[in-house]
Nucleic acid binder design. Structure first.
Lengths: 119, 119
DNA sequence: TTGACATGCAAGTGAACGCTTGCCTATTGT
DNA sequence: ACAATAGGCAAGCGTTCACTTGCATGTCAA
């Protein structure tokens, strides 16, 4: 749960997501290769990659002076398990909750439409 | 695609995720109810909820002076489709890419382990 | 009607973020 | 050996973020 933070933070930036996309198009690219696609200084890209790496979203492998970047899809799968499947429409419960709200502490309040604040 | 930004930004904050969790535990809560669980000023919670609402992650319904908040799981599903299923281990392609890298422009470099920079 | 309640709106603040620039080191190929 | 290449590190800077405080407005209940 602690690294859910790193994970979502890493995904929160469009540049970082674009990097993931580039690596998805072709895995194992070097820093310089990735720089070609991003309109940004090399150092900017480096920092983004560092964040992705910290979130365990990619692994690196040194080859001489080159740094190869490989995607790691596992954390994404964890997001799915913790944050998406969990929220899959539990329609029955949702309706139950709604009903509870509408009928709460009394039966009088009929679903009268909100007058103000809905312009 | 444009609102992928809003979506990920909304999920990037632990407070916001906690709010989602609270609403998942019981949907349709009011602002004040949600405030009880977050160690934060009411206005703080309001702003978080506004972001979640902007990301279309929850819908509100006014009931007199109360604002009821309901989860909307649809955007999460979109994240899954666009960002998780897409990255599901395409093992074959991954291995192909790796091989490409290792054998690139020559056959000599065997998978020699990185000497430096791996302390 | 009046007071308590539920919420909105606006401005201020410190910290985090995204990005750049400048310089340094290691590896490669000729 | 040396120039070119690939990358790292640190400091600086403007922007956005999370959060607070203070005051205003609409709604319910006695």
């Amino acid at each position: 749960m602690g690294n859910a933070d790193l994970l979502f933070k890493a995904l929160a930036d469009p540049g970082r997501r674009k990097l993931m996309d580039r690596l998805h198009a072709q895995d194992g690219q070097t820093l310089s290769e990735l720089c070609h696609h991003l309109d940004m200084s090399r150092q900017g890209v480096t920092q983004h990659l560092a964040l992705l790496e910290a979130a365990n979203l990619l692994a690196v492998q040194w080859r001489g002076r080159e740094k190869l970047h490989f995607l790691n899809p596992v954390p994404l799968q964890e997001i799915y398990d913790r944050w998406i499947r969990k929220f899959e429409r539990p329609r029955l419960k949702a309706l139950r909750d709604l009903k509870r709200r509408l009928e709460e502490d009394g039966q009088d309040p009929p679903p009268k439409p909100p007058t103000r604040r809905t312009p």
